[in-house]
C-alpha cells in the first residue's frame, strides 16, 4: 500500500534520510518510535507531499512521488501529490481544525468541495462520525470551545470523512493533557480494528505495544530496527533501541 524506497532527504546541508526504505501492507498498523528529531514526522510529511525529498521514491497505492531537485514541484508532481492526498488522511499533533468553522463545517467542507458529495449526505455522514466518537452534541460548536482531546477526535473524524485508504498520525497525543490521551487513542484503536492501513508516530509505548502490527525504530534519520511489538519491547536487538526504550519506559 505504501512503499518508501531508498529515501534521501536534506534540510539545507543536513542529510537527514540517507536511503531509508519501508513497506506498509494494506491493513497494516505501523508505529514509528524514536527520539524527537529522529525523522518520524519528516517521513510522514514526505509520504503526503508536505515535504519534498531529494532521492528515492515513495509509492502510495500505485501512485509514485518522485524526488524533486528543482525548487518548485512540476505540475505532474503536484497532480501526483494531490492524488496521494486523496488516498491518505493525516492527523497532526496540533489538531489544526479551522477555527472559523464549526465542528460540522470542519468535517463536511472537504467532502462537499473536493469529493463532490451533496451537502445533505456529507452532513448525514458527519453526524454518524460524530456519534461514533460521542461528539454529536458538539456539531455546532467552534474548536475554541472544545478540549484538546475533543479537538483531536474531530480532526480524526474530519480526515476519515474523506474516506482515505490509509491514515497517518503525527504524534496525535503529544499536545494533550494526560487524562485526554486515552479518549483519542481509543478512537484510533477503533479505526485500526476496522482494518485501516495506518502509520502512527508516537511516544505512547503502551499503545504501540497493543495496537501495532509492526514497530519501526528511528534514530538520527535512520531506521535502526523494525520488528513485531513484542520483540521490540521484550528483546530489542539494537543498543540504541535499548537505550531509547530504557529512557522512555523509566
Amino acid at each position: 500500500m505504501i512503499k518508501v524506497r531508498n529515501l534521501h532527504k536534506y534540510y539545507g546541508d543536513h542529510h537527514l534520510f540517507k536511503g531509508i526504505s519501508l513497506d506498509v501492507k494494506k491493513g497494516e498498523v505501523v508505529v514509528l518510535i524514536g527520539p524527537s528529531g529522529s525523522g518520524k514526522s519528516s517521513l510522514l510529511r514526505c509520504i503526503n507531499g508536505l515535504e519534498t525529498f531529494q532521492g528515492g521514491e515513495i509509492e502510495v497505492d500505485g501512485i509514485a512521488l518522485h524526488s524533486i531537485s528543482r525548487p518548485k514541484p512540476s505540475s505532474s508532481d503536484m497532480e501526483a501529490i494531490r492524488q496521494v492526498r486523496l488516498k491518505v488522511g493525516m492527523v497532526f499533533q496540533q489538531f489544526n481544525l479551522f477555527p472559523h468553522m464549526t465542528v460540522i463545517e470542519n468535517i463536511i467542507e472537504a467532502p462537499v468541495k473536493v469529493l463532490g458529495v451533496s451537502r445533505d449526505k456529507a452532513m448525514e455522514d458527519a453526524i454518524s462520525f460524530l456519534s461514533r466518537i460521542n461528539m454529536a452534541n458538539k456539531a455546532d460548536a467552534h474548536p475554541e470551545n472544545l478540549s484538546g482531546g475533543q479537538q483531536q477526535r474531530v480532526a480524526i473524524a474530519r480526515a476519515l470523512a474523506m474516506k482515505p485508504e490509509a491514515m497517518l498520525f503525527d504524534e496525535p497525543t503529544a499536545s494533550l493533557d494526560p487524562e485526554m490521551v486515552g479518549e483519542v487513542l481509543s478512537v484510533i484503536k477503533d479505526m485500526v480494528n476496522e482494518g485501516m492501513t495506518t502509520i502512527i508516530s508516537t511516544h505512547e509505548m503502551g499503545f504501540a505495544r497493543e495496537a501495532a502490527d509492526r514497530v519501526v525504530v528511528f534514530a538520527d534519520g535512520d531506521i535502526i530496527e523494525t520488528s513485531a511489538p513484542e520483540d521490540i519491547f521484550t528483546s530489542p536487538k539494537n543498543d540504541r533501541t535499548k537505550s531509547f526504550l530504557s529512557r522512555i519506559l523509566r
Partner: peptide, 14 residues
C-alpha cells in the same frame, strides 16, 4: 498559522 493551510491542502483542496 500556515499549518492550517497545509491541513486544507491535505484534505485535497487546491
Amino acid at each position: 498559522n500556515s499549518e492550517l493551510e497545509k491541513a486544507s491542502l491535505l484534505l485535497g483542496k487546491g
